[in-house]
């Protein structure tokens, strides 16, 4: 009799636990999260203060207020690439300063086409991956669309080797931190704590991007710069003596992508302290001429 009683006392209550007690999500939490999303709202309309009729397309880029008024080049390579390309295509547009939080896709640039009232379609922003089609459809000058098989290969040089060196140079190199905070951190907040946090986040994000692209766990600037130098020399070789890349008669998207980096590296208005990338580029006179040509055609 007594043994029966003690067994009753120690026997645990009926527990609805799954196969693995510790790592299973607790049932009430699982039930709660299964309910989400409760409701998906339709996209917000544009704020009331935005003008109903925009007769000219607007490209939102990273730029300072005063530069935006003058229509100067953006200081962000991917924004500058599209800004330049839209100029090549002679699309009529103006630029406005913005930041990533304002963009529907989370990244700048994006373009709001000229809108008519009550036309919902004209209020849809165009993200950067659809800008090429937009420029070809709305531009005054038709950009020759000559697919070149080598273009994709050379694009990978730009998107990896040169971009990695750019990321290191601007975001991680301690000498350039003054420039970094002038471009990306000071416009965001005046609080010192927020600035420190943002600087930390930006650096970590840049590091993660480089590590992901190079497949090497450590970031060695000497290697990054020498890889970028090889890439610039290869681009110089393939440019040859022609005015534009791949023997095209008109500048195209690839020229705009190259210009986005070469211009910013050589730009005197940016206070580069660590000038190694510019020194590397100085050994490629063809690319410098290419940059000067575009700067002259589009901005002077």
């Amino acid at each position: 009799m007594p043994s029966e009683e003690t067994r009753d006392r120690t026997r645990p209550g009926p527990r609805p636990s799954g196969p693995s007690g510790w790592f299973a999500i607790p049932a009430p939490l699982a039930r709660l999260f299964k309910k989400f999303p409760l409701l998906t709202y339709p996209p917000n309309e544009l704020p009331a203060r935005s003008p109903d009729i925009r007769d000219v397309a607007t490209l939102y880029v990273f730029i300072s207020d005063s530069d935006a008024l003058k229509g100067l080049p953006s200081y962000n390579p991917s924004c500058l690439k599209w800004q330049t390309f839209l100029k090549f295509a002679r699309v009529e547009f103006r630029i406005l300063p913005s930041n990533n939080h304002a963009s529907p896709s989370g990244a700048l640039p994006f373009l709001l086409p000229p809108s008519q009232p009550n036309d919902v379609k004209s209020q849809t922003p165009i993200p950067s991956n659809k800008l090429e089609r937009y420029a070809l459809a709305h531009g005054a000058s038709k950009i020759p669309d000559v697919p070149n098989p080598r273009l994709e290969a050379y694009e990978s040089l730009l998107d990896h080797r040169i971009r990695n060196a750019w990321l290191y140079s601007l975001y991680i190199s301690p000498a350039n931190s003054a420039l970094l905070s002038q471009l990306y951190i000071a416009p965001v907040s005046r609080s010192a704590h927020v600035r420190t946090a943002i600087l930390y986040q930006l650096r970590r994000a840049a590091e993660a991007e480089i590590v992901r692209s190079t497949r090497r766990p450590a970031i060695d600037p000497a290697v990054l710069y020498s890889e970028a130098s090889e890439a610039f020399r290869a681009l110089e070789t393939v440019l040859g003596s022609g005015p534009w890349f791949f023997d095209s008669s008109e500048p195209g998207l690839f020229d705009a992508s190259i210009f986005a980096y070469t211009h910013l590296v050589l730009d005197e208005r940016l206070a580069w302290e660590d000038r190694r990338l510019a020194d590397i580029l100085k050994e490629c006179p063809g690319l410098i001429e290419h940059r000067d040509r575009i700067l002259h055609d589009c901005w002077e």
Partner: peptide, 20 residues
Amino acid sequence: IPLQAADSLAYASYLTTRGQ
């Protein structure tokens, strides 16, 4: 030749990024 070297670099980069 230099153009081949440039192509070699570009295609190696293309292979290691897109191929991967």
